[in-house]
Design a binder for these strands. Structure first.
Lengths: 232, 232
DNA sequence: CTTTTGACTACTGTATACAATTTTCTGAGA
DNA sequence: TCTCAGAAAATTGTATACAGTAGTCAAAAG
């Protein structure tokens, strides 16, 4: 999801703005854990760091605020959003509701070509599991679910889901234990998703709904308080 | 939903910023239909209109972009978001998914006091229906549903829902026919919501889910293309 | 020794000014 | 009359500069 919308019908060469460039770099720094949750984001320091002046930097921060990655404290500036155990529970519950909605609206999939992104992600997932490449596995998993949610072609659904994805990436970025827990079921990852995709292809909506409702992460959610600390 | 977050625990006197003030005034102008969907929002004209300089105005626009009321076209400025029939379908389908989620997470309601906002809204709805005051009915209806969604205390759920609420208000603001259709079931409005609240109070989750799934608006969704025009 | 008050520092909020790009208007040619 | 090129106008993107507020630390009073 880009921060800016492209004008429909136009296929001109879009000149990326400074603010957009800053969004991408800053987002990467945040989700990678370079900036830790709760950390203050001092504008002057960041503007110097990125080589831009403060106005575009502030715009970038507003965009990241929309994505749910930073928080604005009036007259006190921006901080990286502090994610608590309760926040993670929120993210997972909302994620489930959105995926369920995607399945209910998107199935049956009439045009098989629309499933190609999911097939590609699944294949990448298989390779990543084979090579024990967690980084690639995370990426493929992310892409698989994004493709699932994209099935109904529902813009608001996609955007909302994207925000949650970024916040989960942030969790993984700043908390290695969290990241580990997310892949406690590392071996099952590919088979489970393969099963899910097959159920989608055969049009077995009930099976798909059951599978996403029990889509692992039970152990993760149970250990959340130990991983992050209780919210408040 | 405020654009800025208040620091938890602090009850200081918050100095409202120019940008926040502009957000409120501009939002009112947009949802009331003063600015029509698709209309360009020229920064200099607006900054003159509100008596602020362009930087805080641009920040206000970014905040409204987050709420889904305006759209940013790179190097071409901001426009009021053009809402098509498909957009309204998106809004309604997402709304349903979120309300269902709220019911599933929030029921049973252990503390009866948490239902008070819904009771208040329902009472206001009854009075509004009695007085044939559509304005008040809209407001009470909005508040009832917001209270429903607030039951689980799920911040992300509430924020997402709030964005949809504003967009629906925008629809009603700029399209009188649309507004009329939304209250084609004007007489049923109060009884239906009273029934809904009763089911919540008695803890009949199945009944509640059934009711929000069939919560009117069928005729509205059928006539959308005539009301707005097909999206693209 | 504790508490309170004051000034100081750092930072955000805002305004003005300039640069770069897009859009529009004008005019010539087909 | 329509199309295309070029220039001018309008508007966005960005930088610099200043004002105002919140947080901090020290000094003085209790």
């Amino acid at each position: 999801m880009s921060a800016e919308a492209t004008a429909p019908g136009t296929s001109k060469v879009l000149v990326p703005t400074m603010a957009d460039a800053v969004v991408q770099r800053l987002r990467a720094l945040i989700v990678s854990g370079e900036f830790r949750p709760g950390e203050r984001l001092v504008e002057e320091r960041l503007s110097e760091m990125f080589g831009v002046s403060r106005p575009p930097l502030r715009e970038a921060l507003r965009i990241l605020q929309r994505d749910g990655l930073v928080q604005s404290l009036p007259r006190r500036g921006f901080i990286v959003i502090p994610i608590t155990a309760d926040d993670v529970r929120e993210i997972y519950s909302l994620r489930f509701a959105l995926e369920r909605m995607a399945v209910e609206l998107g199935m049956p999939v009439l045009d098989p070509n629309r499933l190609q992104p999911m097939r590609d992600a699944l294949e990448d997932m298989r390779v990543a599991a084979e090579e024990m490449n967690d980084e690639a596995a995370v990426e493929a998993n992310s892409r698989f679910h994004a493709a699932l949610v994209s099935l109904p072609g529902h813009k608001r659904l996609i955007d909302t889901y994207e925000g949650l994805r970024l916040q989960l990436e942030l969790c993984m970025g700043y908390n290695l234990k969290f990241r580990e827990q997310m892949f406690g079921d590392r071996k099952d990852m590919h088979p489970r998703h393969a099963q899910l995709l097959e159920s989608i292809e055969t049009g077995d909506k009930e099976a798909v709904l059951y599978e996403i409702a029990h889509h692992g992460n039970a152990s993760l959610l149970e250990n959340l308080d130990d991983l992050i600390g209780t919210g408040g």
